[in-house]
Design a protein around this nucleic acid. Structure first.
Lengths: 253, 253
DNA sequence: CCCAATCGGGCATGAACGGGCATGAGCGGG
DNA sequence: CCCGCTCATGCCCGTTCATGCCCGATTGGG
């Protein structure tokens, strides 16, 4: 196994479990702790993990749930399928806006190398992932960065989205339902999502089925603003049908 | 078998199995390792595989950028000392702008946790580093993201810097000298640097001594625009004195 | 405040690398 | 048909790289 491969794998492990430690990595990869330390130093310098005594933690944690590890494993499967299904909605060329959120981040990370399009995002982790994608022209939306979600919000972000027009938006929501529409806990973030929705010709909502029926503080639109909902099979066919009656196409990946 | 045929086949193998190694390819194709290395170099230059010690990996399999880490190993020692010295210039509170560049990134990574201030940056790696720093209020400057430096440039960035006023700017330069001032290879990046300089009350230049006397395509200011230069002891005392006569304080870390 | 775990700099080693040179096959102009 | 040129390949050898080992310094939990 080559050093970069091992580093890549370490990075994956770190992102999956939220942390890695030198000794277990050394055992797992059958190398000495020194080598692992060197790998972690490389990853640290590359800015993708932060080195701590005894191991490392990934930078750019995607969401703010208290125990990230548990949560990642809970819905990881669904989110993965959703992300993959979303790939089918990509235009061959053109412009897309990518929202913040773990599902959307997974989707962005899954973009095949041969894709060549323009991406606009206000999500720091997504931007970091796409920055070295050779085919992608990345535009970063600025603003105040919220610690929790690592997303840019407020005046700069709102204005930026007010100035552009994209082919498609991939948006996330903490809660969605026909009655309460699309909701998220933070007002500032909701404002940005609303601005992004206004900037896109087509709105694709990526949300696993556990979000259905949930209702949070800030509302940023109705389901009728969404052209396509991609979720998992946890959404009952009846609910899906009800949503489709509202004019939103539904894909249950 | 012709060379391009062999390279095509190597690429196919690499994509199929996710990796190839020099020695087995040499055996398989009945040529020497040198030839395989030349093939891999060709494929690497074409951008379809990434060369690693012992073999190659198809692009897209590694989602972090080893190059960035590599560049940081050059003169890492000097840069480290410079970064540490720059910490002394931090205000206890207030606002600072952080430029893109490896030296400045090192400086940002070295920020102690207890610091509490507002940071504005157009550098993606720096933003990613500081996003989870609890004491820091981070503002991201948007714009088109340059692949090479992962920095935001162009209209959005220029406008953002035109709207703010910060206490101090930590800026990098690819070349600096009393005659030619501050230079960098990219025009767009130079424009952003100039805008950032105009937005700060105090300008601190972080540059290792190898940059002294260098001259690049795009000029974004003169040394007299710099209030403080932090460099390493590789800058001769005479040169330092000459710069100080121009009104710029010099620290040789 | 102490001690064990961890860290990181220095050194050693074997594999891999790559620049330079030589050889031989194909190519093209005269 | 000849001769010089280019290209692909092989070989040589000094250099670099990845890794492991050692040991003193540092860190952080108890």
């Amino acid at each position: 196994m080559y050093a970069p491969e091992r580093q890549q794998e370490i990075l994956r492990l770190a992102r999956d479990s939220g942390r890695v430690d030198v000794v277990s990595l050394a055992v797992q990869f059958q190398v000495t702790a020194e080598t692992i330390r060197r790998d972690l130093k490389t990853l640290d310098r590359a800015g993708v993990v932060r080195r701590v005594h005894g191991g490392a933690i990934p930078v750019g944690r995607l969401d703010f749930e208290p125990d990230l590890a548990e949560r990642e494993t809970t819905a990881a499967d669904e989110k993965d399928r959703i992300a993959r299904a979303a790939l089918a909605e990509l235009p061959d060329e053109g412009t897309m806006i990518v929202d913040a959120g773990s599902t959307v981040a997974l989707f962005a990370a899954a973009l095949p190398m041969e894709f060549s399009l323009t991406v606009v995002t206000h999500s720091l982790p997504t931007a970091a992932r796409l920055a070295d994608h050779p085919g992608i022209q990345l535009h970063l939306v600025g603003g105040r960065v919220r610690h929790r979600t690592r997303a840019a919000v407020d005046a700069w972000a709102l204005r930026a989205y007010g100035e552009i027009r994209a082919d498609v938006l991939f948006v996330a929501a903490n809660g969605f339902s026909t009655e309460h529409g699309l909701t998220t806990p933070d007002l500032a973030e909701a404002a940005v999502k609303r601005a992004a929705m206004a900037a896109a010709r087509r709105v694709v909502l990526l949300a696993d089925s556990s979000k259905h029926g949930q209702e949070h503080f800030a509302r940023f639109g109705g389901l009728n603003d969404v052209d396509l909902l991609i979720t998992d099979s946890g959404l009952s066919p009846e609910d899906a049908l009800a949503i489709e009656r509202g004019g939103t196409e539904v894909v249950r990946a």
